[in-house]
Computed example of a mutant assay.
Amino acid sequence: MDFTYDEEQQALREAVRGLVGKAYSDYETRRRTVAEDPGFDEQQWGRMAEMGLLGLPFSEDDGGVGAGPVEISIVAEELGRVVAPEPYLSSVVWAGGLVSAVGTAEQRAEVLGALAAGESLLAPALAEPGRRWANDATAVTAAEDGGSWVLAGTKEPVLHGARADLLVVSAMLPSGGTGLFLVPGDAPGLTREGYATHDGGRAAKVSFDGTPATPLGEAGADVAASISTVTDIARVMACNEAVGAMETALRTTTAYLTSRKQFGVTLNTFQALTFRAADMYVSLEFAKSLAVWATMVVAAGSPAEIAEAAQRASLQVSRAGRHIGQEAIQLHGGIGMTAEYSIGAYTSRLTALDHLLGDGAFHLRALAAAVGDHEEVDPLP
């Protein structure tokens, strides 16, 4: 595999870095942005749409650009570098990916076209209270009445669910299985209770009470397999975003060690602290290699291969994110715990990404359960 970017990919990286880097070059700008609803800069979201970033994963027929997973990973990593609060991962990669995978041609053109233009914000309503990282639905049920569909139940947490113009909702079908439905934000019988999350984002408790819904794709079809694959792709892109955040956390920490003085010398003079920073670098490189490899698998692999790659990358990124985030705060000392300093925000975002689509323990269990599926091999001499 060739892990280097070509000229167009490098140009995309520089363009995205210039856009989000300019917007959030000052950490105080990010703090002010997340302090007020909707928790991100809608003007910045519009600028991302103008650059074509919101339509990057989708085909040209659906109003997008038709780029591949590598290009999406570049955007995710650059957003992670500045912990940009814009809901690219949840709205474009996850919710938009579900519409792209399951929707009819008319639905894809309408929904994804509006998303790509920055005219509509999507939110994936898949998570359910009391359940963790499941691809099927039980808490929300769908019922058909005279050719129309209605939903009942609760989804939580729904990322940016209070602000979303359109919800992509998973629900249990009358015949069994899980279907996907589109629900406008102003639909009757829909209740949304928004709140701030620890990393500065927004989520909501979304309740349905006889809420009208439009089936996404074929009515009554079980799409649990498609939900699983799109979620795995979102996991890989979350890994890339985490890599961007970890790179900045490490760079910020090493800069602090070379500037902060104690006993008349800079902190990097103390060998023990330098060794700890070196260990952070090793964790980062392991995580980055797995994230890049998993992205390449998404570009050419089968659903089963994508699932395993997502699990392997997510496990390594989970371990690296915890290690780098905690060490970054420790090496900063007391100032690392203050809200005024950026390193805490990076650690909080890494923690949120770790728990969004399955933490390290979740992926380790899945990988361990599949060990018996592999053939035995002789040890290397």
Rank of each mutant, 00 (worst) to 15 (best):
S289R: 06
F286T: 01
L356R: 15
F270A: 12
S302D: 08
K261V: 08
E340V: 00
L315V: 00
A278R: 03
S283V: 07
M280S: 03
F275V: 09
R322H: 11
H374Q: 09
L290V: 01
T253V: 01
D373E: 08
H355Q: 13
D359V: 12
G325R: 11
A366V: 04
L273S: 03
D359E: 09
M337V: 00
A291C: 10
Y281P: 01
V265Y: 07
S348Q: 07
D359C: 09
A310R: 15
V297G: 07
F263V: 01
A310P: 13
M337F: 00
L353M: 15
K288F: 03
H363D: 05
A300C: 10
D279Y: 05
V298K: 15
S302W: 14
V298L: 13
Q262L: 15
Q330M: 05
E308Q: 12
D279L: 06
R251G: 13
T254Q: 05
A309L: 10
Q271D: 08
R312W: 06
H323K: 03
Q330A: 06
P303S: 04
Q262G: 15
Y341H: 09
A249F: 12
D354I: 10
H332D: 07
A300S: 14
V298I: 15
E340H: 00
A304H: 12
L267G: 07
G321W: 15
V317H: 09
I343A: 03
G358Y: 13
A313F: 10
V297F: 11
D279C: 03
W293D: 05
A309G: 10
G334C: 01
G333H: 14
Y341E: 13
